[in-house]
Amino acid sequence: MEKRVTFKGWLLPMLLLLPQVIITAVFFFYPAGQAVWQSLFIPDPFGLKSQFVGLGNFEFLLNDPFYRASFLTTAIFSTLVTLVSMGVALFLAVLADRLIKGSGAYRTLLIWPYAVAPAVAGVLWLFMFNTRVGVVSWYLGLLGYDWNHVLNGNEAMGLVVVASAWGRISYNFLFFLAGLQAIPRSVIEAAAIDGARFWTRFRTIVFPLLSPTTFFLLVVNIVYAFFETFGVIHTITSGGPQQSTTILVYKVFSDGFVGQDLGSSAAQSVILLFVVGLLTVVQFKYIERRVHY
């Protein structure tokens, strides 16, 4: 029998819920509602007049081939950022977990990049890969490779992915390491006695037991790639060349704050809201089933 603690009246539980409800209402429902409302209008930048266009903004957007392409760009970008940052972090965490001496220093050093703001990270990577004076592009030139992310869309995408994933590796590393250390040694030792080698142990015991951490990081990293990588893209490519690195959230910014087109910008926010909502539902419905708590 499950034991349930219940409140007697309804006043106290309501009161306890109230702060959370207020915060959600003020910081989420109100702005989201505003965005939905604004997406139905074409206002002038100064807010002097505004014209009701119904779903006109959405129609304009969905007829724009560059906007439709931006969905694919976002999908490629987020998948790559998530895979690279989680993959490298897991690899490093597994190594750190086996480390006996000097693991403290190793861990501390690995955490440092997390303190670097995305925009600053963008500038750092941009300097290394500058087409003319960058250190890395200079060495690539010696190898006979002509690096030019200003004109080459694939190179630009590679660069923003690496720059975005870099700072994130630290964050993921911390969680993976904690997850690894929470796995009981006895289970792993028992498997080892049964003759399971490292790779088998990792595949059949460690990785499944790590799945709650992996799932949590997957959700958090996708949200990061969708929204917080803005600074990196703004500093490195400004969405170029040929919009090959314009992800959805960057387009919200450039249409709203460069183009002063607030109607289109609001409509894009609404679309983005739905995309991320849908994505989260999918994650919790289908991927979480494979997670063992």
Partner: peptide, 17 residues
């Protein structure tokens, strides 16, 4: 919207270069 139109021109010129 000329700031944004310049952005479009930049993109298209980059395709030529």
């Amino acid at each position: 919207s000329f700031d944004q139109i310049r952005g479009i021109i930049d993109e298209e010129l980059e395709a030529v270069w």
